[in-house]
Write a protein that binds this DNA or RNA. Structure first.
Lengths: 193, 193
DNA sequence: CTCTGTAAACTAACAGTGTTAGTATATTGT
DNA sequence: ACAATATACTAACACTGTTAGTTTACAGAG
């Protein structure tokens, strides 16, 4: 029977590798099992089902995204930090599009672990805008705004929705981020008055 | 054999209905065929394959979204038009989330019909910001920015990503749109100088 | 008004998907 | 050395989209 002592971690790692190379769309348990030299049914000794495996890949993706963002804003403040964060987020989405897609497919409300993961998504953004003089509620709103801009941009760029016009896509993104910083500064002023 | 003379249009209409009621995820050709009282294989007399059917549903979704947006901005100008457009876009995404998802799944580069459809997505936005004093390239960029904000917001709200904080989601959206209008006005000023 | 060709339906089958039940066996702990 | 556990297996089920080949209802032409 030639058992090789696969662990849950091995399977998650192989799933990540396969999603990145073949695309989320072409992922299948049979092919994953084949790459691990086992049969598909044997995967169920390690994982509950496919959704659970996706969720696990999602945790990995979130932690990687968080790491990229925190690394980018380290030592930076205000506008510079926001630009660095947005740049890191954009780079992550472009370089690892399939892994990025997994994050958005997570059902964020399901359990405590997913709630915690949602916190990991929010944290770097809250840190980046932390130097602005804003109250907590403003920060919550503005965090959502920046996340909308970044995610909306990446997912549409990925879908090919931005090829209708010849204008440079990177310039559009810079303008979007600049607009957000403008909003940040504007909110700050209003808060001071 | 009891032929009922189904048309391509009947099938697309039934597909739209089924996607809206059962969700894009639960859509299947077998179930669709069953609802039309035919076998799944018979669908292929009318459509090329499932992708082509999705594309057709996408055309419908885009035209509906365009209609909603144009209706909302009729007679309005500048900030008022932008707010009305954003509101209509948001309402469409919330009221018909499954149909909305289809739009983003379209491979926008594939053929001329899809290129034209991409134009239908862009058009209402370009009209809404048309009253601002901007050159063509600025408009292209700003159109992308607004689209990113609107789509990013809706898709994350739909995915449950905004439930981490208690702050009102509608307020966040209003702030995002206000930020975009700020950017519009700012771009305009710079253009005049 | 019949004849013929088209097109709409069918059945059967294929290759693929995730998943469960039941079974054998290698490894680990006692 | 023996028992328990966990890892692997085979077989099967109920799905999925899709193709090939077949029947037959209907529309248009002679």
């Amino acid at each position: 029977m030639a058992r090789q002592g696969l662990t849950r971690g091995d399977i998650i790692a192989a799933a990540i590798k396969m999603i990145e190379s073949e695309g989320l769309h072409n992922f299948s348990l049979r092919e994953l099992a084949s790459r691990l030299h086992i049969k598909a049914a044997s995967l169920y000794n390690h994982i509950q089902n496919m959704d659970a495996l996706y969720t696990e890949v999602g945790y990995y993706a979130i932690s990687e995204l968080k790491r990229a963002q925190l690394g980018a804003i380290a030592g930076k403040r205000r506008g510079e930090a926001v630009e660095a964060l947005a740049d890191a987020y954009h780079r992550f989405g472009k370089e690892r599009p399939e892994i990025y897609k997994v994050i958005l497919s997570l059902p964020m409300v399901k359990n405590d672990a997913l709630q915690a993961a949602a916190g990991d998504i929010v944290e770097p953004i809250m840190t980046a805008i932390g130097d602005y003089n804003l109250d907590e509620e403003q920060k919550m709103h503005l965090q959502r705004v920046l996340r909308s801009i970044m995610h909306g941009f990446i997912s549409q760029e990925e879908a090919g929705c931005f090829r209708h016009f010849p204008a440079d896509v990177a310039d559009s993104y810079r303008m979007a981020v600049r607009g957000f910083i403008l909003l940040l500064e504007n909110s700050e002023k209003e808060a001071r008055v």
